[in-house]
Design a protein around this nucleic acid. Structure first.
Length: 702
DNA sequence: AAAATTGACATTTTT
DNA sequence: TGTCAATTTT
């Protein structure tokens, strides 16, 4: 028997035991949110509720499985029966079950971003829009506007006035495109991510019997990360739970970081209004971070306007202050990070250390350095595993056996064959899946005799249809077929891609139903890591992907202007606020150690040189008493008395005059003794004497 | 019609 | 840097 009173603090206990009616839990970072949800699940089960009658909507699959695992441990038995997942995943299952009610008599296929682009491309050539016009926005850009307008539930016109004034002339065209995209989806029984949510809402609104069914099954609803839901998701929650229903939502308005895809902090602020009589519970005690770290995150918090007052306090008083480290360039930053990690790894296992960044590509220089030092790491965020071209190829080949016939999969799969392009692929698809049987047989035979590859593939598919092997074995067969194609198509980085396919095999081996495997690959962000992160593996992650996770040591890199906040966000004060919250989320991931890295210059591809950058405004406004500047010997060698200092990081020496003597030697810091207009300087480098250097190679320090 | 080549361009974040 | 779209070659 679990002792709830002993295991929880009073606020947590109240959240756990308030099982009747609506409850809003405002959970500050590190306040035991997951623990509360897990104990509440256990509590409900103890009260006699059946796990399958509890619906747990979380933001990511990762979070869901983590919770189920923890509650399984707590209850000493399987909690696998708890229903749950992402809003999208839940919607998919519901739609699949009631597809006929929505007019999909033969089922439907869920598109990922690449599929949607393909459909839009078709619509565009159909309507002959933007042809040869170089300033017409890209397909993916157009799609992002369509999606954003839908998620924010504003018209395209309003959205474009807000975010893309320079493209407003194309408004008419884009509206026509949207219409055609919509029709094409309908014709092909395709459903995009946004459709999943809106169709589900329609399903529940228009079919009282379905709504009754859903409400009778899910007697308790819990929603995690409520601050990141958008309008339609909030309405779905309301529909499923009903206004007087047993619903608990958990969130933190200070951690809302998904505004860009329509998340609305208003949902959490309006919860008391949407669910009259809702009980509001605040979790303010922080169990994660030491007080010095909390002082810094509270400082970040205090400079943001927050709606629900929070006062986080820690029970962990001891610990070092956060560190601020300022390497000369992004490459030196990578080295400095590596150094820190090596020191930290004496205290913590590698998987308890994480490096976080604003955008996935910010980690490139670090990845180079880690590979060089052969430190193993896992990277989260950025391009999704299942969106890599070779993975999509293989998945398309597998999708070719499914019903209803998946046009996008067929055209992609067939176009892999020699001598087959878009046109032929389409013709074959029509012959095989739409024409009458004799015509299909004829066409197939004709093509088989011409293309050995084609007959090989057809044989594979036929076999699969007959014997219905599991995903793993089918994948093996498909890979035998695909490997030669891969070798020709992607000669350059074959090893990496082969590695990816191996990971795919691993994922597939965990499934026994082909259609479930394929749907999951599109819908759930199935990571190649499997269920558990490997031991002794460093974590690299975008801050967005780090949401809800925690590590003993967290290092945040590239805290400079233009990158954090990102340049695009600077246009809109609302977006700057969101970036601010993003930094808050990043810093609150740390338990013991927090390292803030502010490089003084970044490599600039266009010019080929490093360009000086300023620290992020978010860093500048932190009270400097709250962190310690790392006194790193490598950067503290400047003799006293040097006033006008410059530094030349080693990686800049590349551009130095090739006459030998300073190519690899002059770097570090020196004093400018004479300026030689327009752009040369006489610099005295300790130990090397006077050199004349072009201003392009220098970073001025004061 | 497919395959290869060139040229332009933009670079957040996720389901 | 790599990706996408338009253009030329096969």
């Amino acid at each position: 028997m679990i002792n709830f009173e002993k295991s929880l603090n009073p606020a947590q206990l109240e959240a756990v035991t308030s099982t009747r009616g609506p409850v809003l839990v405002i959970a500050g970072a590190g306040s035991g949110k997951t623990r509360t949800i897990v104990y509440r699940l256990a509590y409900l089960v103890h009260q006699g509720e059946l796990p399958e009658n509890i619906l747990l909507l979380t933001f990511t699959r990762k979070a869901a499985t983590q919770m189920l695992r923890r509650s399984g441990k707590l209850l000493n038995r399987e909690m696998g029966m708890v229903s749950g997942g992402t809003f999208h995943g839940f919607s998919f299952l519901l739609l699949k079950k009631f597809a006929q009610s929505l007019g999909f008599s033969d089922g439907f296929t869920v598109m990922d971003a690449a599929d949607a682009e393909e459909v839009l491309k078709g619509a565009r050539s159909e309507l002959d829009i933007g042809k040869g016009d170089k300033s017409f926005p890209r397909n993916r850009t157009v799609l992002s506007y369509l999606s954003k307008a839908r998620n924010k539930e504003i018209s395209l016109q309003v959205l474009m006035e807000q975010e893309a004034m320079h493209l407003i002339n194309y408004l008419e065209d884009i509206i026509r495109l949207e219409r055609e995209y919509f029709l094409e989806k309908q014709r092909l029984s395709l459903v995009d991510f946004d459709d999943l949510l809106f169709f589900t809402e329609r399903l529940l609104q228009e079919n009282p019997e379905v709504l009754d069914y859903v409400r009778s099954v899910y007697r308790h609803v819990m929603v995690d990360e409520y601050q990141d839901t958008n309008l339609v998701q909030a309405r779905l929650a309301r529909l499923i739970a009903s206004p007087q229903g047993n619903i608990m939502v958990v969130g933190d308005d200070a951690q809302s970081i998904y505004g860009f895809r329509g998340a609305d902090v208003g949902n959490i602020l309006d919860f008391p209004r949407d669910f009259p009589g809702a009980r509001i519970i605040k979790l303010e005690q922080n169990y994660r971070s030491t007080q010095p770290l909390l002082d810094l995150t509270n400082c970040i918090l205090s400079s943001m306007g927050q709606k629900f007052e929070k006062n986080l306090f820690s029970s962990r008083l001891e610990g070092p202050k956060p560190e601020l480290i300022t390497p000369a360039s992004d490459t030196s930053q990578a080295k400095a990070v590596l150094e820190r990690i090596e020191k930290l790894s004496a205290t913590y296992p590698l998987h308890e250390i994480a490096v976080l960044f604003r955008a996935a590509y910010h980690a490139y220089p670090l990845e180079v350095e880690l590979n060089r030092a052969s430190v193993s790491y896992q990277k989260f965020g950025g391009m999704k595993f299942s969106e890599a071209a070779h993975i999509k190829d293989v998945l398309s080949l597998m999708r070719m056996v499914l019903d209803p016939p998946d046009l996008l999969a067929w055209t992609r799969g067939l176009a892999l064959l020699k001598g087959v392009g878009p046109k032929t692929a389409l013709r074959l698809y029509r012959a095989l899946n739409q024409g009458d049987a004799s015509n299909a047989a004829q066409e197939t035979e004709r093509f088989k005799s011409r293309s050995e590859q084609f007959s090989g593939l057809m044989h594979l598919l036929e076999q699969q249809r007959q014997f219905q092997e599991g995903p793993y074995h089918f994948l093996k067969e498909i890979l035998n077929f695909y490997r030669p194609i891969l070798e020709e198509k992607y000669m350059e980085d074959l090893p990496r891609r082969l590695g990816g396919l191996e990971q795919l095999e691993q994922i597939a081996s965990a499934y026994d139903q082909l259609d479930v495997f394929l749907a999951d690959m599109v819908l759930e962000n199935s990571e190649p890591t499997g269920l558990q992160a490997r031991e002794d593996t460093l974590v690299l992650s975008t801050i967005h992907s780090a949401k809800g996770l925690e590590w003993s040591a967290v290092l945040i890199i590239d805290l400079v202007e233009e990158r954090f906040p990102s340049r695009r966000a600077m246009l809109d004060p609302g977006e700057v606020d969101e970036e601010h919250r993003l930094l808050y989320v990043a810093c609150t991931r740390a338990r013991d150690y927090l390292g803030l890295f502010v490089p003084e210059s970044l490599y600039h591809r266009v010019s080929g040189f490093n360009q000086p950058v300023l620290p992020s405004p978010f860093i500048r406004e932190i009270d400097s008493g709250l962190y310690s500047r790392l006194r790193d010997d490598q950067y503290a060698k400047i003799p006293a008395g040097y006033k006008s200092r410059v530094s030349v990081p080693p990686e800049m020496s590349r551009g130095f005059p090739a006459n030998g003597y300073c190519r690899h030697k002059i770097f570090g810091r020196g004093k400018v003794v004479q300026a030689m207009p327009p752009n040369k300087y006489r610099v005295n480098f300790p130990g090397f004497g006077l050199k004349t250097i072009s201003g392009d190679y220098l970073i001025f320090e004061d």
